[in-house]
Design a protein around this nucleic acid. Structure first.
Length: 154
DNA sequence: GCCAACGTTGGC
DNA sequence: GCCAACGTTGGC
């Protein structure tokens, strides 16, 4: 059982949007970074727990708890020429990009803002908080997971 | 809207 | 294989 943090822009897909989706589940498409793809393809397991993080938001922060609800499979948007995430260099025989399904499992009593995360000394080493980090999927350690749950009142 | 940080691309 | 140019991310 591993823990992850996945970023989403709430204007595009918020935690509540996932919550309201059929089966509270959505395909996490659009990842176009090799490191993030490799996490999904090589390391994520069904049932891994996920913090859903709102980026480009006011304020940014952790909005809810989800879980990995599928194995990695090809992201269909890479094949769609009319789509923003189209990748002309990828083929159906050898897809470059994958996604997983993410299921919202629990609302949290309190939103945990980026400022609060930064202010918690227990999270000093958290990947999300490192200088210049832009990775949209990052691992979360069990200790970090517990600390953030406490901050969220969960 | 600005811009620092980082990833990718492509000429050489 | 180097590295400058360019594009993107995402906080502010």
């Amino acid at each position: 059982m591993a823990y992850w943090l996945m970023k989403t822009e709430p204007d595009v897909c918020s935690f509540d949007d996932i919550w309201k989706s059929p089966k509270r589940t959505t395909g996490w498409d659009g990842v176009r970074n090799y490191q993030a793809r490799n996490f999904m393809r090589d390391e994520m397991q069904l049932g891994d727990e996920v913090f859903v993080y709102h980026s480009n938001a006011e304020p940014p922060g952790i909005a809810g708890i989800a879980e990995v609800a599928s194995a990695a499979y090809p992201d269909p948007t890479q094949f769609d020429a009319s789509h923003d995430h189209y990748d002309a260099g990828s083929t159906r025989d050898d897809p470059r990009w994958v996604q997983v399904d993410i299921k919202a499992v629990r609302k949290i009593p309190r939103f945990v803002s980026l400022d609060e995360l930064r202010a918690n000394p227990k999270l000093k080493a958290m990947r999300l908080l490192q200088r210049g980090n832009r990775l949209s999927i990052t691992p979360v350690t069990p200790a970090e997971w517990r600390a953030i749950l406490a901050m969220a009142g969960a």
